[in-house]
Nucleic acid binder design. Structure first.
Lengths: 221, 221, 221, 221
DNA sequence: GATGAATGAGGCTTCATTCAT
DNA sequence: CATGAATGAAGCCTCATTCAT
């Protein structure tokens, strides 16, 4: 993918100093991404200039471009990480979903009680800063949403099957899954970005999950 | 609209030529807003330069600034119009909501079957282009969301009262209303902006409304 | 000079209505100049846009251009009026100067005690806003200064002659006259524009005049 | 100079290349300031566009903004340098002033015979281009004048004390000092900017100083 | 004579990206 | 590998002036 990284990919046994270097490099990249995350979330993607990001990460502008391709790449990298984290937490919860629906309940809990309060910057970047920035970024956003929606979708289908029912169509399940993502998104936007009601997030999450589960159970009547 | 040009506000009977001028002015503003709407939705807010907008509206750049304060103002004006339209259509449907929940069903139908297919540009601007652009724009976005959410919220509370039930708390109703807005938003984003499945919008809307109504009715069991 | 004004210059007996019109026109021009004076002095020449001036004068922008050639012309007209006023007041005082030097004392009194407190806007325009604006404006400024300096110069020469002395050269008298104008200028700038010490202006003027007269009398020793 | 680039201020021993860079940076800034000085004095502050300045300095527009904050900053930097130079030359002369008044005579000589002929651009910027440009610029102008006036003022007070006399009030000394500055200013404007009589500047300066000293000595009679 | 909408050149400034050291 | 000075295209906006009504 990147010309310079090929050296490491040729898994030749690395010398000690080479290992150290690699560690340092990864550490440096993390610092840069952290700086970008903070500034993107705090000042907004456009207002956060590359120079400011470099300053915050305590590197030079030139160094920035050694670790990332361009500014868009910075946003994409962050976005993908956020998507990965989210899917790691939510996806695994959804995957445990069975008849009991506890998986869905658990996913909601994790999102509102763990992810949101601990990663407000990620929320801001995923739901605000990365919106409508460019075709590439939108593609990554869509990809993340698609995967998350798919996770939920599979869970819903599994529940249905266990109940001996079926969705009217594949679309129906997808619509429901998409709706759930939309709920999570807007609730986080309202109560974390626009208002800071972190302390109410637990209640909010429970209400939301109740709403969702009500909607689902309704299918089986 | 403009501090100094209040002469019209003093409702002195306007001469015929003055009336014609005013009409022309309003027409011109509409042309400009239309050009901006098309370009913002098509190329994105940032890529749509003021020059391009002027060209599209077939006026000079200077004329643009005779009708609007600055680029941000252009977006805000569009946003407010969209918010007004949405609330006009959805709000009135929600307001008719009673025990039967037909109001909510109707609101869903209007949004997915009428508004979305007929105003894809509005959807793109409201849900994509206006996100995270500046504090002023965000304030207007929030304001629109707040009002829409409030409309839904009132409808929900009314339904509950008619059922002789009550929400656990005011927050619960608000959370449900916010969730509904989130569902509408993401579904429109998925099936209108990211995919163009206008022809499926009817089914999608019905599924979404079923989900919502299921969630609501669950409250009364 | 101006194509349109030629009608009046052909001093044909004017009808009553034509007379009224002319009066109105002159009144209107005064209003416009007044508005410009206030805005130039208050916001500065560049920040005072033609539109603002028109608004303040309660006419349209188009009308402005019926009465003046362009913005520069506005400044020049003001400047010339100020020059005329100044010369009217100071010049006549200087002209009465004889052996006794009371004329010079009187001129100082008039400038500091009458002109400055009553015409701070004129001071701001003459000494601040018109400085370095364009070649045309500078030419008018120079012209005004030259005339004032000449008035002083003549007075000084007369005093000398009456004392039976002579200036070493014509330049000497001119330098002294120029110096006196510089004193007046900077004192007004310091104590009227930069600080507002209008109430001290009398003392300041007296000190200044004492300084001047001391310098002059020294010639005769 | 720049908030972030304080690294040099922590006086860590700089490497050779870092030292060279710093030298180059300072040299470049001087080139830019020189270009601005020439253009401001020659074409006027407003007519000198940033592009023209960049061209004259043989750098790109972007580079300009690496060295200065904005156009106003360019003028302020020049102004402050001029103020520093003036005070360096005049101030030190004034400070040597004692009973004999030679200090004052010397200051006049330096200004008219050395500073003016060698720095006509500085004169144009200080007395013409920087007048009434903005509040910030005016503040710097005032600051420079205040310091120069204060230098003169201290000298006058010292002379008086040595003569066993006293000024009627502090204001009196200040007024005299301000007057002297005004004389210098207008004489330079008349005989250097409006007319180019550099060759007469010596005589002019002597006449001016004679006038001043006459005025001062008059205090002791 | 008066109006005010329209013009468009030109100004200042930002900022992602590059590259010689 | 790291640096940071340099680039220059591109953007937004202002405003004196004109002219059809």
């Amino acid at each position: 993918m990147n010309k310079k990284k090929n050296k490491q990919e040729t898994k030749a046994p690395l010398s000690k100093s080479a290992l150290r270097r690699q560690r340092e490099r990864e550490q440096r990249l993390k610092t840069i991404l952290g700086a970008a995350q903070t500034l993107f979330a705090g000042e907004g993607y456009h207002k956060a200039s590359m120079e400011k990001i470099a300053d915050t990460a305590e590197v030079s502008v030139g160094t920035l471009y050694f670790y990332i391709k361009n500014k868009e790449d910075l946003l994409v990298k962050l976005l993908d990480q956020i998507g990965f984290d989210l899917r790691n937490m939510l996806g695994s919860a959804f995957k445990t979903t069975d008849v009991s629906l506890t998986g869905i309940r658990e996913a909601g809990r994790i999102f509102f009680e763990e992810f949101c309060p601990n990663n407000p910057e990620s929320i801001a970047i995923f739901f605000r800063e990365s919106v409508g920035q460019s075709e590439v970024v939108e593609a990554h956003r869509k990809n993340i949403f698609d995967k998350l929606i798919n996770d939920v979708c599979q869970a819903l289908i599994r529940v249905c099957e266990n109940q001996g029912t079926r969705f009217q169509s594949n679309l129906s399940a997808e619509v429901m899954a998409t709706s759930i993502m939309g709920m999570f998104e807007r609730l986080a936007y309202q109560y974390l970005i626009w208002q800071d009601r972190s302390e109410d997030l637990k209640t909010i999450g429970q209400d939301a999950v109740d709403f969702i589960i009500g909607g689902i159970e309704n299918l089986f009547r």
